[in-house]
């Protein structure tokens, strides 16, 4: 082959396609802002469901927040829940349909603020669901207000001089709290800013989905994300800001990997 005359069309025709849009991702253009981490996590969810071949038995529960329209983008069954109540709705669905695989997809305002009670109790009961938690330290959809996970000193629409302990309290590390609950089997924190971290995040989501399919209790994947519109930065700058400011407070890695707690440890003594 005369490699000097190799054109782009030749590579496409003769070569193999190593990356393509997952089939489960519908053709609708996502309404997310340019560079939003939601798009990457949606694609990872679609890829994992496609690879596990569980499209027909998967039911997702959308939250309220930016990802409220998730049902427009991934070709599986979805149920909409009211604000913060996705784990409660998922509990009902998974108990009525034990043969189905149920996961929730929630943001930090939804899961850590208004739905803190629901997620705590769902994880404590050890429901056989997977939870994907997008933590971007801000209420993105409503215009960049302070969330429970907002860092100290971070400027938002409602903390124009930066978050202050006296006034607004401390940021909430909800993933650390959930890791202590006996009903969870896999709790991890991931991110999606580089190709390496995206691949690691995909592995984590796959493991969480497999755990839920194997009825091993609740699996929880936090994804430390950017909200470049809310943070008022370019997508590339937002990723850099996340690496410098979010990662020291929200370190990436597995917090818990194992099985549900042994009931004998929690039962009454004779």
């Amino acid at each position: 082959m005369d490699t000097n005359k190799l054109t782009q069309q030749d590579i496409i025709r003769q070569g193999e396609q190593v990356y393509k849009r997952p089939k489960l991702l519908l053709d609708n253009t996502m309404h997310y802002c340019p560079g939003c981490s939601h798009g990457v996590v949606h694609r990872l969810v679609a890829e994992v469901i496609e690879e596990l071949g569980i499209q027909e038995k998967t039911i997702g529960v959308c939250p309220v927040g930016c990802s409220v329209f998730a049902y427009n983008y991934i070709d599986i069954d979805w149920q909409e829940a009211s604000h913060g109540r996705a784990p409660a709705v998922a509990t009902g669905i998974s108990r009525v349909n034990p043969d189905k695989f149920v996961f929730t997809y929630q943001g930090d305002g939804d899961l850590a603020s208004i739905g803190a009670a629901e997620i705590m109790h769902a994880c404590n009961r050890g429901e056989n669901i997977a939870v994907i938690f997008i933590n971007n330290a801000i209420y993105g959809m409503t215009g960049g207000q302070m969330a429970p996970t907002t860092l100290l000193g971070q400027v938002t629409a409602t903390t124009p001089k930066g978050r202050n302990v006296e006034r607004n309290g401390y940021p909430l590390k909800i993933t650390e709290l959930i890791a202590q609950l006996p009903g969870t089997s896999y709790v991890t924190r991931q991110s999606v800013e580089t190709s390496v971290s995206v691949r690691k995040c995909k592995t984590a989501i796959k493991k969480a989905f497999k755990n839920a399919l194997a009825k091993k209790g609740t699996s929880f994947v936090e994804v430390v994300s950017t909200c470049n519109s809310g943070w008022k930065m370019s997508p590339v700058k937002a990723n850099k800001w996340m690496e410098e400011n979010m990662f020291p407070f929200y370190p990436v890695g597995d917090l818990k990997d194992g099985d549900k707690a042994d009931p004998a440890l929690y039962s009454k003594k004779n």
């Binding site: 490699t3 782009q8 030749d10 070569g15 190593v18 990356y19 340019p34 939601h38 798009g39 990457v40």
Partner: peptide
């Protein structure tokens, strides 16, 4: 491709980070 040393190697890093899944990657062994 052949004249430019900074050519695409088909690593699919760009497609992995794309939030809108609009990149397809092809690779050819020669």
């Amino acid at each position: 491709f052949m004249k430019d040393p900074d050519e695409c190697i088909g690593c699919s890093n760009c497609a992995t980070v794309c939030p809108d899944a609009c990149i397809s990657v092809y690779r050819l062994k020669i």
